[in-house]
Amino acid sequence: MKTSREHPSMVDGEVIGNVEVSPNHFRLTLRLPGTFSTPSPGQFVMIRDLERREPLLPRPLSVYGFHREGGYAILVLLYRVAGLGTSLFSRLRSKAFLNVLGPLGRGFSVDCDVRRVILVAGGVGVAPLTFLLREGYSQTNASGKTQTTAYVGARTAELLTGLDRLESFCDLRIATNDGSAGHQGLVTDLVRSDLNGCNPEETFIYGCGPAAMIRSLGLLVRKTAIRCEVSIEERMACGIGACLGCAVAITDGKGLSDYQRVCKEGPVFNILDISPVFFSNE
């Protein structure tokens, strides 16, 4: 069962923190009205600076952290500066306001009966997985019922982001393309070597990262019976299922495929449901 969907709302959020945690990667903390629904792990928000006409469209960002404090909802997001929108976000200082729409989409399934949780993240893909771990598995982890390993990859050591919020909750394995930290190579290489001996019934893999990472994770998982859910990215305009911009090709396994909306049926999908067509844009 996937986690249930709360009612979305649109609110103004006050910036109370916007810290560069690694080059070009920022952790943004927003204070929202207490009426904002509690997001499930894997859900996302659309954010936009209301003072500007450009960029036109809001930007989708996965929830990285969420808690309630003094009648307010505190929302934490992690983003990489990738274009005009995120570049403007990076210049925001405390007391600035952003418009927040959410929580949106369908999040990760949490199965408290599993004994082993494997997180596979590329770059800012750590954001929804960190929230999943802390919201979905913190109790079973604390009691020793589940054991969690997070595999985090980046191009180079300085681009590894968000490790501080993960390492106290799980075993951490690092991979970098240039070998400047951890294993030299792909994060999925590390996962492959550790999958041997996993009991598929008691294991759950969660992934979030670039399409190339999701593709190789899919190839790995396909050979096992381990459940695997991934959060994927696609350009979107509205975030609420109206624009049909964020289509992802979903396969029924028999070669037939259909489009689903990343914002509504996703952003979390069973990795085996994603058609290979999804990866052809890379």
Partner: peptide, 10 residues
């Protein structure tokens, strides 16, 4: 079914 992605661009 509609077109393949990417379908939109700002």
């Amino acid at each position: 079914p509609g077109n393949p992605s990417p379908r939109i661009m700002e």
